[in-house]
Design a protein around this nucleic acid. Structure first.
Lengths: 151, 151
DNA sequence: ACACAAGGGTTCCCTCAGGGAACTGAGTGC
DNA sequence: GCACTCAGTTCCCTGAGGGAACCCTTGTGT
């Protein structure tokens, strides 16, 4: 948890950060996304403190990103799975991957490749305009006040 | 700065987090993106501690996201502007905005609207496949080991 | 029957990063 | 000379992250 709460700001970036902005949260999400759904697995893979992992998982469940599901009743065992809200958040991870691959991967190249089901090719994510379908980057936009703007 | 350093992990998400994962960094980037480029402006707008702002700006400049530019010699005054690397990172902000608008804006609607230069319409960003151009989400992908994978 | 292991946490203490306010220092305007 | 602005820096205090140990329930080997 940040010292300053971002959730109350009239800014969708701040509110998104309120959900996954805490240290480790994006990496936890990533691990669940790739199928590493159990406490012990995640803890060992990331090398995160057990305390912090427990806090983050509780937070992500509370925010509706993950769901705590019992996969064995006896003995009681739980795993964490993505909700619809959480799955959509994974698109954000893909954009982070794209930027990281481009600017930080260096000589060695990207550590993971992504194959698109639809076309079967190794590709990466590219932002497009939801209206006209053309590529859309941060420099191609005008910002206008919206209905939810603070008074 | 996180206690655990993410930069050395063989994961583009972790490496991206190493650059903008610290608390406040994405919001600082956002402010520079919308044209709020000066220390005093950013500090007052965000309500961030001056100490932390100075640290973050130093970090973002060090990572090649921002450039510290003198806009007046006498008196010496500086502003922070986006580099190419930083501008591309803003695409990440747009995806955060999109998710935040969808899942956290509530009744009031999005606080800011984005108009695409190319088509002139209010739109939002949507991830597409760089190869086939079709919409691409986290669930449409297979993950394969890449060349930069850890040994 | 008993020891031990594994999953999934919780509790403890310690350190260090964030918050807040005060201070600095160059330069300008009056 | 005095106030004011920008852009930081320094100070102390609190609270979050790291690490290790501990806990509880159930399963398993002997």
């Amino acid at each position: 948890m940040q010292r300053t709460q971002f959730g109350t700001m009239a800014c969708s970036i701040a509110r998104t950060l309120d959900v996954i902005g805490e240290p480790w949260s994006p990496l936890i999400l990533r691990n669940v996304y790739v199928g590493m759904t159990r406490f012990e697995q995640i803890q060992q893979d990331l090398g995160i403190s057990r305390k912090v992992l427990a806090e983050r998982l509780k937070g992500l469940v509370g925010n509706g990103i993950l769901e705590r599901r019992e996969y064995s009743e006896r003995p009681p065992r739980h795993e964490y799975v993505l909700t619809a809200k959480g799955t959509e958040l994974c698109d954000l991870l893909l954009v982070m991957v794209r930027w990281g691959d481009r600017w930080t991967a260096g000589e060695a190249g990207p550590p993971v490749l992504y194959r698109h089901h639809a076309c079967g090719e190794i590709s990466h994510v590219e932002p497009h305009c939801s209206v006209c379908g053309a590529p859309m980057h941060a420099t191609d936009l005008d910002l206008l006040p919206g209905p939810g703007q603070a008074a």
